[in-house]
């Protein structure tokens, strides 16, 4: 298996005006490449939640899209901190530490990480004060 497509996007801290733009570009790329609507929708929901999380909670970071020759899609969302103190709590539906600004955007329901986990076929998360890395894989489901 080898990577046939790779692109990295920057996400800036507090860039509320462009929230969702990276996800939009990724979704458009997937459709252009010919990924099915069911898979591209799952990827889009996950990357959108990751992008919003990065804008709201992190000091900025990057999102990388990789596609392999076997059709597998990998997303790596890597930020510059401050990290998630309790990942288990953050994975609990409804748990939220979102700010008033996040609420104004329509987020802060405490469904971000649970939505990401549900849509991905493989979900890995590591977090420290230096940053959080989400590594997600997606493929066609039977």
């Amino acid at each position: 298996m080898s990577v046939i497509y790779q692109k990295t996007y920057n996400v800036e801290k507090d860039d509320y005006a462009n929230a969702g733009l990276v996800s939009s570009l990724i979704k458009q790329s997937l459709r252009t490449i010919g990924v099915s609507s069911a898979v591209s929708r799952r990827v889009a929901v996950a990357v959108y939640e990751a992008e919003i999380n990065m804008i709201i909670h992190a000091y900025g970071g990057t999102i990388t899209l990789e596609i392999s020759d076997d059709g597998a899609i990998r997303l790596i969302a890597s930020d510059l901190g401050p990290g998630i103190p309790d990942i288990q709590k953050a994975l609990t539906p409804g748990f939220s530490t979102a700010s008033k600004k996040a609420m104004e955007l329509g987020f802060g329901a405490g469904m971000g990480l649970p939505n990401i986990k549900r849509n991905a076929d493989e979900f890995h998360i590591e977090s420290s004060p230096a940053g959080t890395v989400l590594d997600l894989k997606f493929q066609e489901r039977e």
Binding site: G20, S23, R41, A44, V45, Y48, G106
Partner: peptide
């Protein structure tokens, strides 16, 4: 705001 449309787009 734009996020209601972004959400619609993703879905």
């Amino acid at each position: 705001n734009a996020q209601s449309l972004r959400t619609a787009q993703m879905l």
